[in-house]
């Protein structure tokens, strides 16, 4: 564990909590892409299957349970509890355009052709594109509420910090995970455009529609 990874995990947790609290407090999921949240729940489900088979550390186990619980809670709030405020009109990104290439790639590029490894690889590739429906929705509605931009900021920051973590681990322990690094860089690149808007335009973001 290093400071970059810890900061990354904290940033990730903060992002998830920001979104969950926003929906819970405002009793509405307007402007939130339910499709992205379903994809994130799928990412955690396919990545944390080793929760019951491999014990790495208390931190690792606790964080996996927390991420799974919070992501399913978010999906539940969007599609069940506050479904009447779900903006299905604008949440129309074709997720099959993400799932099919990701499934194909995870069968082609993986460390081992075993169910657990392929599902882990699937979750790594899927995570890099899971935010697309949300970014698509923002361009479609032409705006993002300030809290949503904070959510996206911390979500983008988390994977950027993981890149620093991979550089650090490469130099200190010779560790590198090629699939995670390539996918993590792609994921962070998707946020660059948003980071620019977030920094230059402050909280409210209006995308040039």
């Amino acid at each position: 564990m290093n400071i970059f990874r810890l900061a990354g995990d904290v940033s990730h947790l903060v992002a998830i909590l920001i979104l969950l609290m926003k929906i819970w407090r405002s009793k509405s999921c307007a402007g939130i892409s339910g499709r992205s949240q379903v994809l994130f729940a799928l990412v955690f489900t396919t990545r944390y299957l080793d929760l019951f088979t491999v014990y790495i550390s208390a931190y690792n186990t606790v964080m996996k349970v927390v991420f799974l619980a919070l992501s399913y809670a978010t999906v539940y709030l969007i599609y069940m509890r506050f479904r009447n405020s779900y903006d299905s009109e604008n949440d129309t990104f074709r997720v099959e355009f993400l799932l099919i290439p990701v499934i194909g790639l995870s069968f082609l590029e993986n460390y081992a052709f075993t169910p657990l490894e392929i599902l882990w690889t699937f979750s790594i590739f899927l995570e890099s594109v899971a935010i697309m429906p949300q970014l698509f929705m923002i361009t479609k509605t032409g705006e993002a509420e300030s809290i949503t931009t904070h959510y996206l900021f911390f979500l983008g920051l988390y994977r950027a910090l993981y890149i620093a973590n991979w550089v650090w681990r490469y130099h200190t322990e010779g560790f590198y995970d090629q699939i995670a690094i390539v996918s993590g860089v792609v994921q962070t690149i998707f946020y660059c455009d948003f980071f620019y808007l977030y920094v230059t335009r402050g909280e409210e973001i209006r995308t040039p529609s």
Partner: peptide
Amino acid sequence: LQDSHLKDEL
């Protein structure tokens, strides 16, 4: 350098 497959990262 090795591709560690130990999934210790979240």
